[in-house]
C-alpha cells in the first residue's frame, strides 16, 4: 500500500489558490502520473496534496476568438470525443488516442500531461508546434505562458509552486496544417521512443511559413528543432528539401540511450518520420 499524504478537495479555484499559497502542495487531477509516482515511491512523497477533481472552472472545451481553449482537466477521452477538437485540432485527437488505453484516457488530463512535463509527454510536441499558450493562475493573479517558454529543463516548468494550470489556448491560424506521429514499443500502453509534431502554414507560391518541428523523448524536455524549421521555412516540401530537413534534424538532435531505446535509433527515426511527413505533404 502506498503512502497516503493528506489531501484537500476544494470546490472552487480561489480555495485551491489559498491552499497552494499556504505551503508546498502537490495537485492531483486524473492521478495517472501522480499516483504512479507515489505508489512506486519514485521521488519524495509530497506532504500535502490538492484534489482538483471538483473544480469545474478547470473543465470545458470551447472556441474563443479564433482559438480552441481546453480546460486543464479535459481528459484524453473528452478530447477524442470532442467535435470541436476533431474539427480544429485533429492532431491532438490523434495524440490523445495514443496515450495509454481506455483506463488512462478516461482519467488523464491535458493539464496533467503539461504539469508532469515528461520529456515523453505525448501531447506536448503538439502544444509546441501549435504555438499553444498556457494560462496559469494563483493568488498572485493569472498569466499566460507560451508553450515554447514553459518547459525549462528536465521535468521543470515555468509553473510556480503556488500556481495551477487553468487552461490551454490553441490559436487556429487559417491554413495551418498540423501532423502528429508517435513511435512506441507497442501499439497501446506505451511511452514513446520518439514523438513528433509538424506544423506549417501554406499560402501557395511563397512556400511554407511558420514551420514548427517539435519532438518528444529526444531531449530532457519536449523541444523544437529550430535549425530544421529554418530549412523548411520559405520552402516547399520537395524531395530535396525533405532530404535536407531530415539531415538537419539528425544533426540537430542529441538524444540519449535509455531503457526504452537508443540514441542512434531516435536520431535516425526522427529524421525518417519527418521525411515521411514531408513526403506525404508534398504528395511525392
Amino acid at each position: 500500500m502506498p503512502a497516503e499524504p493528506s489531501i484537500d478537495t476544494p470546490r472552487h479555484l480561489f480555495e485551491a489558490y489559498e491552499r497552494l499559497a499556504a505551503g508546498p502542495t502537490r495537485p492531483i487531477a486524473g492521478g495517472t502520473d501522480v499516483m504512479v509516482a507515489i505508489t512506486g515511491e519514485l521521488g519524495p512523497i509530497p506532504k500535502r496534496m490538492l484534489d482538483l477533481s471538483r473544480i469545474e472552472e478547470l473543465r470545458g472545451i470551447s472556441l474563443e476568438d479564433g482559438s480552441l481553449v481546453l480546460g486543464a482537466r479535459t481528459t484524453y477521452t473528452e478530447i477524442r470525443r470532442s467535435a470541436l477538437c476533431r474539427e480544429h485540432l485533429p492532431a491532438l485527437v490523434e495524440a490523445a488516442a495514443t496515450i495509454g488505453a481506455a483506463q488512462i484516457q478516461n482519467r488523464g488530463t491535458l493539464g496533467g500531461n503539461i504539469a508532469n512535463a515528461s520529456p515523453a509527454g505525448d501531447t506536448l510536441p503538439i502544444l509546441l508546434a501549435a504555438d499553444a499558450v498556457i494560462l496559469v493562475g494563483g493568488q498572485r493573479g493569472e498569466r499566460e505562458v507560451p508553450a515554447d517558454d514553459f518547459f525549462i529543463s528536465y521535468r521543470k516548468t515555468a509553473l510556480a509552486p503556488d500556481e495551477l494550470i487553468l487552461h490551454v489556448r490553441f490559436p487556429l491560424p487559417r491554413g495551418r496544417e498540423l501532423r502528429f506521429r508517435k513511435v512506441g514499443t507497442r501499439r497501446a500502453q506505451a511511452i514513446s521512443k520518439v514523438v513528433m509534431a509538424l506544423a506549417w502554414e501554406d499560402f501557395g507560391s511563397t512556400g511554407w511559413t511558420n514551420v514548427r518541428v517539435a519532438l518528444g523523448s529526444v531531449a530532457a524536455t519536449p523541444i523544437r528543432a529550430h535549425a530544421t524549421e529554418a530549412v523548411l521555412d520559405g520552402a516547399h516540401p520537395t524531395p530535396e528539401v525533405a532530404d535536407r530537413a531530415a539531415e538537419t534534424l539528425a544533426g540537430e538532435l542529441q538524444p540519449i540511450d535509455d531503457v526504452r531505446s537508443t540514441a542512434d535509433y531516435r536520431r535516425m527515426v526522427s529524421a525518417r518520420i519527418l521525411h515521411r511527413l514531408l513526403r506525404d505533404a508534398g504528395g511525392w
Binding site: G31, M35, V36, A102, Q103, I104, R107
Partner: peptide, 22 residues
C-alpha cells in the same frame, strides 16, 4: 501503476484503473 488493468472498475460508467484513483 495503471499498466495492467487488473484493477479495472467502472467509475460513473467509465472504465478506470482503481489503483490510480484516490
Amino acid at each position: 501503476e495503471g499498466e495492467c488493468g487488473a484493477c479495472s472498475v467502472l467509475l460513473d460508467g467509465q472504465v478506470v484503473d482503481a489503483c490510480l484513483v484516490p
